[in-house]
């Protein structure tokens, strides 16, 4: 009996440890959510309640933000155009682009980012949802309308600036995510599995990949039923989708004295408490991840 138990335990652990990730192997099911990734939402000037302390902050100008994260298809289009006109270049296994640099104060732990070329994204990394045939970029089948991931802050910033936009500031992002009434989540006060893609939220893509899950198409949580999974319509008060969960979003702020960049909104592999609007993550601007994407803002 004891032997059988330990044998079964051993086999369970062994199989769990040897199970390969199917991230690359299986194309995800194609889902058209009906939410247009090219659309923009207006966020009007005014005060809003920021942070978990609900501090009143005034944003005294109107601005626009993309309704969804930038998708793989959109980013592939950008790469093709920008590569052709010389805005970006391929160096080794990376796509590089110019950045004018941060102010450097020689502070403890501070990293210097002088003017120069920086990596926008890797070309040969697992987790990338783009294919490149040495001339053209395309989104991997099934991932066309999923958020662009494996993109550095430089990659996000260059994309937005290329189209005469910019990355939103953290304050702009938070206001766009939670509106003016102090809610912690874009759709309201509680997070359910039907609202957003977070760790173990049981969306159809978790069945394929496992508990860490995969990205869901932008606008997935729009009140429709996809692949038998019922969602609630979960936009922010201004109509933005995926402002909590799915992928972290780079914002434009440069943390002074350190030069980390903020990643907001939580992602598919964090618990629901970490997708509250004020919870921050940060990383070096050269960081890329299957959990990090972005969307742009404009005045």
């Amino acid at each position: 009996m004891k032997r059988t138990f330990f044998f079964l335990l051993f086999v369970t652990l062994l199989t769990a440890g040897c199970a390969s990730s199917t991230v690359e192997a299986t194309p995800p099911p194609q889902i058209d959510t009906g939410v247009d990734p090219d659309s923009w939402a207006l966020i009007p000037a005014g005060e809003f309640l920021a942070d978990f302390t609900n501090e009143e902050i005034l944003v005294d100008y109107d601005y626009q933000m993309m309704v969804t994260d930038v998708t793989n298809a959109q980013y592939a289009d950008f790469l093709n155009v920008a590569l052709k006109d010389g805005t970006i270049s391929i160096v080794g296994d990376e796509i590089m682009g110019y950045y004018p640099g941060d102010i450097f104060r020689e502070y403890r732990h501070e990293e210097e980012y002088a003017a120069g070329d920086y990596p926008l994204m890797p070309l040969d990394e697992k987790g990338l949802r783009l294919d490149f045939d040495s001339t053209t970029f395309t989104a991997k089948p099934g991932y066309e309308n999923h958020p662009m991931v494996m993109v550095t802050w430089f990659g996000a910033n260059t994309y937005c600036e290329y189209y005469d936009g910019r990355l939103p500031s953290a304050i702009e992002w938070e206001k766009a995510a939670r509106g003016t009434d102090g809610r912690p989540f874009p759709w309201g006060n509680e997070a359910q599995q039907t609202n957003a893609n977070y760790y173990h939220s049981n969306d159809p893509f978790e069945d394929v990949i496992g508990r860490m899950g995969d990205t869901t198409p932008v606008g997935f949580y729009n009140g429709q039923t996809h692949l038998g999974f019922e969602t609630e319509d979960s936009p922010s008060p201004y109509g933005l989708y995926d402002m909590a969960g799915n992928v972290y979003q780079w914002v434009g702020d440069v943390i002074p004295y350190q030069h980390y960049r903020l990643l907001l909104g939580g992602a598919k592999d964090v618990y629901a408490v970490r997708i509250r609007a004020w919870v921050i993550n940060n990383a070096e601007p050269v960081y890329f991840s299957p959990n990090a994407g972005f969307r742009c803002a404009q005045d």
Binding site: A16, G17, G127
Partner: peptide
């Protein structure tokens, strides 16, 4: 281990 490759390891460690 990278984020893209961590799933099997994380599953095993979670289980343990």
């Amino acid at each position: 281990v990278s984020e893209s490759d961590q799933q099997p390891l994380v599953d095993t460690l979670d289980l343990l």
